[in-house]
Design a protein around this nucleic acid. Structure first.
Lengths: 195, 195
DNA sequence: TAATTGACAAATGTCAAATTCTGTCAATTG
DNA sequence: CAATTGACAGAATTTGACATTTGTCAATTA
C-alpha cells in the first residue's frame, strides 16, 4: 500500500512539522508517535525509518528550536557595530527571543525546558556556540581598545553565567523574572565591567 | 483526654522538629500530618491548632531553613574586613551553605526547592534580606573609596542576579553546576566590576 | 473554658487491571 | 527493491475501585 514517492527529506520535515503542531495543541505529555503518523496519514512504523526513537524525534524538534536562537545571534555577532553596542544588542536579542518563545509558545517552550534537563550534550553544544559568539565580540572590543580583559573566553563565560537569570529557561518561565528596567540595568553593569 | 499542659510554643517547635525528622526520613511525598501527630503522640486534629494547613506547616519548615541561610551571612555583613574581601567571603559563604544543604540534606532541599516555586512572598522576603546585606557591604566600600557605584541598591541587586547560577536552588541541584574554578572566576569578575 | 480528641466529608493518593504506546520486523505494495 | 504497512511483544500510561490523608467541628477532658 505504499503511497506515491515523496522526497525523504520532505517527509522528514513533514513529520517534524506535524510533531510541532501536535506539541503545540496537546503538549509534550500527550504526544504519541502513533498520533503523529495518523495526523500525516501513514503508519507509525514508518516514522521510525526517519527517527529511530521518539526521543530522537523530540531532540530534532529541540535542535530546530535552538537553531532559531543562535542563527540570528550569529548574524549580530558579525554585524557592523561598536563592540559595546553589539554586545548589548546581542544580549537584548537573546533575551527577547527567549521571552518571545516562552510567551508565544509555552507548550513548545516546556518541551525545550524538559529536554534541557536531560540532553546535556545538546544543551552544552548550544551554550558553547553562544559563548563563542560572545567571545568574538569581546575580542573585537579588545582590538579597538574598548574592552580590556585578560582571558576573553573566561570573560565570555562569565557574561553568559551572569546573565542566566535573564535567558535561562527556568528563569524565563518563572514568576520571578526581573522587570525590564532591571534587565537593562544588569546588562549595562556587566558590559561596563569589561572596560 | 487532654494531656498535661505544655507551652504552646514548645509544642509548635516539637511539631516542626518532628516534621523535619520525618521529612528527612521519608521525603516530602510521604509526609502526612497524621504521621507527624502519631510520632508525637497526639491527634492530628490538634496539629491544625498550630498550623492551619499542611502547606503552612511546610512553609514554616522552609522559613526555618531560610533563616539558617541568612543569619550567618548577616554576621559576615557586619564583620571587620575590607569591603572587597568581605563581599567575596559573603558570596563564598552563601554558595557554600547552599551546596552543603543540598548535598547533606537533599530531602529537605527538595522541600525548599518546591516551595521556592510557589511561595513568592517568602522567597521575595528572603531575597530582599540578602540584597540588603550586600547593599551594606557595598556602601562600606563606597565610604572607603574602594568601590564606586552610583546606585548601591541597584548594584546589590545586580550582584545577586548575576550570581544566581551559583546559589539559586535550581542550579545548585543541577548537573550543570559550574566547577569551583568558574565560581571563583565569576565572583572576582563581578567584584572587580564595582571598582 | 482552653486544650484536645475522634468521627466525619471531601480531597488526594495508591495500585492492579485494562488500555495504549513504542519499537521491530516479516509481509505487502507499486 | 525501496517504501510502506500492519501485526506483534514488551514497556508505559490510563483508569477506576479502594485506601489514606486533609481539614472541620461537636463532644470530651482536665
Amino acid at each position: 500500500m505504499a503511497k506515491k514517492r515523496e522526497s525523504s527529506s520532505d517527509l522528514k520535515d513533514q513529520i517534524l512539522e506535524t510533531t510541532e503542531v501536535l506539541l503545540r495543541r496537546y503538549g509534550a505529555s500527550k504526544l504519541s508517535v502513533v498520533d503523529v503518523a495518523r495526523e500525516i496519514g501513514m503508519s507509525h512504523g514508518n516514522v521510525y525509518r526517519f527517527f529511530p526513537s521518539k526521543t530522537d524525534l523530540l531532540n530534532a524538534i529541540a535542535a530546530k528550536w535552538l537553531e532559531k536562537v543562535h542563527v540570528p545571534l550569529g548574524e549580530i555577532s558579525i554585524c557592523d557595530l561598536a563592540a559595546d553596542q553589539k554586545l548589548k544588542l546581542w544580549f537584548e536579542t537573546l533575551i527577547k527571543i527567549k521571552r518571545k518563545k516562552f510567551l508565544e509558545d509555552p507548550q513548545l517552550f516546556a518541551v525545550y525546558l524538559e529536554l534541557a534537563g536531560h540532553q546535556l550534550e545538546q544543551v552544552n553544544n548550544h551554550v558553547d556556540t553562544l559563548v563563542t559568539q560572545i567571545e568574538k565580540i569581546i575580542e573585537e572590543g579588545k582590538q579597538t581598545g574598548m574592552f580590556s580583559v585578560l582571558d576573553t573566553r573566561k570573560a565570555a563565560t562569565n557574561l553568559f553565567h551572569a546573565t542566566a537569570t535573564l535567558h535561562h529557561p527556568v528563569f524565563v518561565s518563572s514568576p520571578y523574572y526581573p522587570a525590564e528596567e532591571e534587565v537593562i540595568e544588569l546588562l549595562n553593569f556587566l558590559i561596563r565591567a569589561l572596560s
